[in-house]
Design a protein around this nucleic acid. Structure first.
Lengths: 146, 146
DNA sequence: TCATTTAGTTTACCCCCTAAACTTTATTTT
DNA sequence: AAAATAAAGTTTAGGGGGTAAACTAAATGA
């Protein structure tokens, strides 16, 4: 394997590690303490495609259905979402935002965006197109793994 | 804020999320079940700079010292590392690999590398330099957050 | 009506984390 | 020399995450 691919792997790993340390930790400890990162991700799917069932949330977010169930329970307990049974199939439950949840999520999203803006503003104007191109490519490669 | 910076933020978030879902989950569930991702990271620091004290490991890996303590205890229990008290300051303990740990870590590292190779091989030869440049830049921006 | 399947929950067990409080040891101050 | 303070690391309490198997309730199919 080429040395440059090796270098690319090391950089990818470093960005993932630093990104997780800096961004996830910053979000969970300082910017927004009401919601964990995984909860924010779940609410993001809900905002984009909601209302959604447990099964759909599991498929979108990944992981085991019991993780989805447990996470949902916490969001219900926090009154950020509500669960409504489907009328013609009472096994199926749709999850939707409460007003409190929509508000909390909006605030969290804004805080994450602000923070990431301050980080990525270090990208020079002429580098942004390169950034967008390379990150789009990496995203597709990661999505292709399934 | 420019639309392109917004797009960059969205892509960065997506890569972080997909990367964590695909890579971390793949590593922890399929490639290597003996070590969690955080344990692998800790052993990586140990390999690069070891032997190290608890305090030094906390500084390198980030997080609270109690997280380091707990993680170390698990690695000790698995006989992957051993802890030796400093002779002239018995509060201080140095952590080093056992043979078993060095072997397990080497295997985990190889598996992670192989997997990431298969993902990033989708990067075209002429894109690698761009990738390296952009990811180096992002890494420095993230490191600068402290 | 009974067997099978599906959607979601619970249980057991693993991992992660922070912060405060604690123990042991070293250093500094009195 | 003794007391106070500081440092290194551990423990405790409480929060989060996860998987997989087993379970419950409901729907579907034979």
């Amino acid at each position: 394997m080429s040395d440059r691919l090796q270098e690319a792997i090391r950089l990818f790993t470093d960005v993932m590690v630093y990104g997780q340390n800096e961004v996830f930790r910053k979000v969970e400890n300082e910017l927004h303490k009401e919601l964990s990162m995984e909860q924010i991700k779940m609410l993001n799917w809900l905002e984009r495609y909601g209302p959604l069932t447990s099964k759909e949330l599991t498929e979108l977010q990944g992981g085991h259905k019991s993780a989805t169930s447990s996470r949902l329970k916490k969001l219900v307990d926090k009154e950020y979402v509500k669960v409504v049974q489907k009328e013609d199939d009472r096994r199926v439950k749709h999850v939707e935002f409460t007003e409190k949840g929509a508000s909390a999520y909006k605030e969290a999203k804004e805080q994450v965006n602000e923070y990431l803006s301050s980080v990525l503003e270090g990208i020079e104007n002429e580098e942004i197109d390169q950034f967008i191109y390379i990150f789009s490519k990496v995203k597709e490669l990661l999505k292709k793994q399934n």
